[in-house]
């Protein structure tokens, strides 16, 4: 209504796609021609529930297409492909003012949470997907192209590690939030909004 050129990117898992909320939203976005980029991270499992046990139609793009929106499927483990696909899809949303559904095919290497015993899938399956880990494959590609030397890679890796270590150290050195602040941020203070 404000005629802004903005786009809304909306992220969710393939498990969440079975919720009515997705279908209501997809219908509205297509019906009202809203500039929404739906980014579905399809990692094949919703906690312990495999895609085929949660979707009648496991081709998520077919599902989304039924709302009359464009769909794009991309190998979510390929950094360059994801970059291009997102750029293209975002351009399409901006150009048409209509929603686009993007399926990013990926995988979760670890358990769903610290409570998850991870009993519902083969260890071999996990290992096979790990060989496609985007950090390794992208690094290998850059090296093969001659865009990245081993020294540069090690320096990047060390810099990233140092950044994480610094963040952890910062957090560890911080003070606990005072209990006196328990009721903070339940409501917006008068006059601050």
């Amino acid at each position: 209504m404000r005629q802004r050129q903005a786009l809304t990117a909306c992220f969710f898992g393939e498990g969440a796609m079975a919720e009515g909320a997705f279908h209501e939203a997809a219908n509205l976005a297509a019906l009202w021609q809203l500039p929404v980029l739906y980014c579905c991270e399809n990692n094949l499992y919703a906690m312990g529930t495999a895609l085929a046990r949660s979707e009648s139609q496991t081709d998520l793009c077919v599902k989304a297409a039924s709302y009359d929106m464009a769909t794009v499927r991309v190998d979510g483990m390929d950094v360059v492909a994801v970059h291009e696909a997102v750029q293209g899809a975002a351009q399409q949303v901006r150009a048409t003012g209509r929603p686009v559904f993007l399926e990013l095919q990926t995988y979760r290497f670890r358990a769903h949470s610290m409570f998850d015993p991870d009993l519902y899938r083969d260890k071999a399956e996990v290992e096979a997907w790990k060989t496609r880990g985007p950090i390794h494959t992208f690094t290998a590609r850059l090296k093969a192209q001659g865009s990245l030397t081993e020294e540069e890679f090690l320096a990047l890796d060390a810099a990233a590690q140092a950044e994480v270590d610094a963040a952890v150290a910062f957090a560890e050195a911080g003070n606990w939030e005072p209990v006196a602040d328990l009721l903070r941020d339940v409501y917006t203070p008068q006059g601050s909004a």
């Binding site: 906690m47 529930t49 998850d116 015993p117």
Partner: peptide, 12 residues
């Protein structure tokens, strides 16, 4: 329910 089977139940 969600994850009552293969997962073994969210709270087992």
């Amino acid at each position: 329910g969600e994850d009552v089977g293969r997962y073994g139940g969210t709270y087992a």
